[in-house]
């Protein structure tokens, strides 16, 4: 067994609606070693978000239920540890970068208020004390880390005063507040323009390598997979269908599904055969 920081083993999840249980994840396993960038790619409905939610403990039970498997973080099973223990890890040692910078921030509080509050509760869970002033210093520090040119001004701003790209940076700063070891990023930059997305992806990559973080990047975009990860898991219909080093996957996909998925991606070089509606699987 490898010493992965995060190891999801044979996890199955089912959703029960009107008394009918539907399997949504069927024996998903994946490893995120420390200091490594791993991508989880799949189309809508493949189960990538449910996998992320299972890891973070965000699935609501009912309707969701984890029926089998283990989720090991640092060697300890998140699913069997006492809730209080799990709470200490979540948002601190393992934290999330959310997708939608518009809906993940509260419009009526300043950035400083929101980041400060998160930090306060993270500190409390870890039994750490910090004064309000120390917290604000830390908030300014992380905003500077995400390359905000004027952290004080950004901290005093309300979300509406910031551009989409700036808000996404705030969300990354939020995830960095309590110096996590593992970042889980759910489609970061998808809601943004392509030039802004490129900036966000580069920032995320730089931060992860600078601070030696482990990254689990959840995305539907194969281009993002290639640019941000060294190992990739491909999901389809609640299962991992293929997992390999990212370069190998693009060089020689093994599974039929992966091949079809890669073939469907339009290339900047052109040459896609179009108007073959009947021929496509």
């Amino acid at each position: 067994m490898s010493e992965a920081l995060l190891s999801v083993r044979d996890v199955s999840v089912e959703f029960t609606n009107y008394g009918i249980a539907a399997p949504v994840l069927r024996g998903v396993s994946l490893d995120v070693p420390a200091h490594t960038q791993v991508a989880l790619v799949g189309e809508s409905g493949s189960g990538k978000t449910v996998t992320m939610k299972a890891i973070m403990g965000l699935l609501r039970d009912p309707p969701a239920r984890i029926t089998a498997g283990q989720i090991l973080y640092d060697g300890r099973d998140l699913l069997t540890m006492p809730p209080a223990e799990r709470l200490k890890l979540r948002g601190t040692s393992m934290s999330m970068v959310f997708q939608d910078p518009m809906s993940s921030l509260n419009p009526v509080f300043t950035i400083a208020d929101q980041l400060g509050t998160i930090l306060k509760y993270a500190d409390r869970r870890l039994g750490r004390g910090r004064s309000r002033r120390e917290r604000m210093e830390r908030v300014h520090e992380v905003l500077a880390q995400v390359r905000m040119r004027d952290p004080e001004r950004v901290a005093a701003s309300y979300p509406i005063m910031l551009s989409g790209g700036m808000r996404q940076r705030v969300l990354i700063a939020m995830a960095l507040l309590s110096e996590p070891k593992l970042l889980i990023a759910d489609e970061p930059g998808t809601a943004l323009d392509v030039t802004t997305q490129a900036q966000i992806l580069k920032l995320l990559k730089d931060l992860v390598t600078e601070r030696g973080l482990a990254l689990l990047m959840i995305t539907h975009n194969l281009g993002v997979v290639r640019e941000t990860s060294s190992y990739v898991y491909v999901m389809s219909r609640g299962q991992v269908v293929e997992h390999r080093p990212t370069a190998d996957l693009f060089a020689a996909p093994r599974e039929e599904y992966t091949r079809a998925l890669i073939a469907a991606v339009p290339r900047l070089t052109g040459g896609m055969r179009l108007g073959t509606a009947e021929a496509r699987p």
Binding site: G223, V225, F250
Partner: peptide, 24 residues
Amino acid sequence: ASVPVISAEEEAMRPVVPLINGEI
């Protein structure tokens, strides 16, 4: 230059854009 691509041929096609303070 900002388009995420999936092959080396495409990567070669992307123009080089100067970075400002290490950022795009």
